[in-house]
């Protein structure tokens, strides 16, 4: 079992226009959520290379969250479609190597969905807490 002091390491990669703005809105609304997710901002979820996510897992991340605009709402028309396709591929890849694909989440949060952002983070953190430390950490030792 994981030791008591273990805290999940989760990275969130967000698009600037919707999800990052939604996360800002959650802040403005003082919506409280668990502090375990670190954030990297990119312009569009289409920018996110599958390798970024896989690198996170290979280096021992317990969870990764990718969040963009709703379909049809991407600031760049369809960057999120193209990005999402890749992300589904990541999920399949994770399954095929026996890594629980619940460790990876792709969500769609708009700039007006501050409350939803709080829920997403809470949900991701809860899931990762349930799953415990990533098994890949053992290999990396």
């Amino acid at each position: 079992m994981a030791d008591e002091t273990w805290k999940p390491k989760i990275l969130g990669i967000l698009c600037n226009w919707c999800s990052y703005a939604g996360a800002d809105l959650a802040g403005g609304g003082r919506i409280q959520y668990p502090p375990d997710v670190r954030i990297v901002r990119v312009m569009c979820s289409g920018r996110i290379d599958a390798l970024f996510v896989l690198k996170c897992f290979a280096d021992g991340a317990d969870g990764v969250l990718v969040s963009g605009c709703h379909f049809g709402d991407c600031h760049y028309l369809e960057g999120n479609f193209k990005g999402a396709k890749r992300m589904f591929m990541v999920k399949r890849l994770m399954k095929s190597i026996g890594l629980d694909d619940r460790r990876f989440r792709m969500t769609f949060v708009s700039a007006s969905e501050g409350a939803k952002w709080g829920k997403v983070i809470t949900d991701v953190v809860t899931t990762i807490n349930e799953l415990g430390p990533s098994p890949i950490k053992e290999f990396n030792k």
């Binding site: 312009m43 569009c44 920018r47 996110i48 290379d49 760049y76 960057g79 990005g83 890749r86």
Partner: peptide, 9 residues
């Protein structure tokens, strides 16, 4: 427009 969809792939 700099979305990076190409760069992500």
């Amino acid at each position: 427009k700099g979305c990076g969809t190409c760069g992500g792939f």
